[in-house]
Amino acid sequence: MSETSLKGKRILVTQAGDFMGPVLCEVLAEQGATVIPNYDDISDPETPARIVAEAGGIDVLLANLAVPAPSSRVGEVSAGEWRDTFATMVDPLPRLLQAVLPGMREQGYGRVLVMGSASALRGMKRASTYSAARGAQLSWVQAVGVELAPENIQVNLIAQNFVDNPTYFPEDIQANPRFQERLKREVPLGRLVGAREDAQFAAYLCSDAASCFVGQVFPVCGGWVNR
């Protein structure tokens, strides 16, 4: 069996109806995985432990976490905006890990892959809340990844931008001529990365072939023009 096959792997996908969730579930199943999609409100502090318990044994946790990106000016960011963004994209991470960790330790291996954003890697106007939350994900993965590596538990993150998905690039935005011009101006590829292209890379990182990567942040985007 190919090392990139996911046959026999049980993969829990959070927020399966949002962001990259639908295409991830589709591609992972095509690669042979038993996909366990979850659609519950991940910001509820009780949800992570409950959905992991309901899922049973987990080989891979795919933390697909997203909110519509706030665009407030820095002086206008409300306490609620900050709190709600972190409650969905940052606070669930340690809760999810603590829920899956005992089972992964018992079986002697495991994978955690976070679907993040490259907004944490580049300054963006009117994105302080969103970028801060995505940056917290990145730092958490780097720290946890090196801590758990000796236990054969790999934790990594995909930092994506300009990737086709319904949360950040719905059809109406993609059809907007101004957005199309922006792609030509800012993205060397001149297009969005395909949803399946991104999901196939995620599937690889969930496979045994990717066991050498720990605490890594993988940018996946059409490339930025430095400005």
Rank of each mutant, 00 (worst) to 15 (best):
M1T: 12
S2V: 01
L12Q: 04
V13P: 09
V13R: 07
Q15S: 15
A16K: 05
C25K: 03
V27R: 08
G32S: 10
A33T: 07
S43C: 03
D44M: 03
V52A: 10
V52Y: 03
E54I: 00
E54Y: 00
A55D: 02
L62G: 14
N64P: 06
L65S: 13
L65A: 12
A69H: 05
P70H: 08
G75M: 13
W82F: 15
T85I: 05
A87D: 12
M89Y: 06
V90K: 05
R95A: 14
L97I: 12
L101F: 08
P102C: 09
M104P: 03
R105D: 04
E106H: 14
G108W: 05
V112T: 09
V114Y: 01
G116K: 05
A118H: 01
S119G: 15
L121G: 09
L121K: 10
M124F: 06
K125H: 09
S128V: 15
T129R: 07
A132S: 15
R134E: 06
G135E: 07
A136E: 06
L138D: 02
S139W: 01
W140E: 01
W140N: 01
V141P: 05
L148W: 11
P150K: 03
E151H: 13
V155P: 03
N156H: 08
N156P: 06
V163P: 00
D164W: 10
D164K: 13
T167R: 10
P170N: 07
E171G: 08
I173E: 10
A175G: 09
A175M: 09
R178H: 13
F179E: 04
E181A: 15
G190W: 10
G190I: 11
R191I: 02
R191A: 04
A195E: 02
A195F: 00
E197Y: 00
E197W: 01
Y204A: 06
D208G: 13
A210F: 09
C212H: 14
V214F: 14
Q216L: 01
F218T: 00
V220R: 03
G223H: 14
